[in-house]
Amino acid sequence: MQSFAPSTIRTRGMPPVAVETGTLTADEIARWRALPWRLLPETPRTPLMNMALDEVLTERVGAGLRPPTLRVWGWSSPCVVLGRFQSVRNEVDEEAAARAGVEIVRRVSGGGAMFIEPEGAITWSLYAPEALTRGMTFAESYRFFDAWVVDALRELGIDAWYEPLNDITSAGGKIGGAAQARRGGAVLHHTTMAYDMNVPLMLSILRIGKEKLSDKGVMSAAKRVGPLRQQTAMGRAEIIDHLVEQFGTSFGLQADEVTPQELSEAERRVDDRFGTRDWIHYLP
């Protein structure tokens, strides 16, 4: 069983007020370290199981049936993940997606559509009691949940920072985004970063309208993203290892696995909800 003992947070010569770099205050670090974090390592799962597991694990943490958990996602196949409130036809060319063998799924949290290829994305979820973010606004909690990632990227030499509300960005372009949902006393915070991106395929499937780009300096979606592969020589697996190690060193982390009950409950919800047309096309 792999385990990481908490140790002193390394200082990086940055003033603690520079929240854009992700730096946490002493009080925030203490909050993270007070919880007995568990790690669910990367395991390839179908897009629908990834959706359902997020809900099941959030509820389990909320009910006190599972310790606070960091889950690294594995993707078994390409997909578009729609935000909870997005319209399918506004976001996706369904015929193009079907031709490319790209499944369309809908997650429990709000935010924007993601185009996922298994080796192109780095995704994880954090499931924690809402007490972890007590006293914070929703907006503040996004920064709080992504700060350690920004620090981990900076350790790799990537000039990354947090950009409100929910983006991780860099001098080289946007790297990733986060979304949250809350269920029964627990908060789910999940983040996806682009490692590599097939931009032409993405643009043939996602509809990125001119209104969405109206406040951006450039009209090209391709110019807005800065996948990690363009910014570091490290491979995807190495980056994931680095992130997990950084989390463990900073906050403590003990290896764990998804229980059979959690898996069967998630499978049931795929059948009953996440895999149904009623859910995926809930907003057509």
């Binding site: 409130f85 997005q86 506004n90 949290s109 709000g110 929703f138 509300l165």
Partner: peptide, 25 residues
């Protein structure tokens, strides 16, 4: 984004969508 039918002079079948966050959902 919003969609609706206004053919009778009032907003009908209003559907609101987008990439915002809303709590509770």
């Amino acid at each position: 984004a919003v969609e609706f039918d206004a053919s009778d002079g009032t907003l009908r079948n209003v559907v609101v969508t987008g990439d915002f966050f809303l709590y509770p959902e």
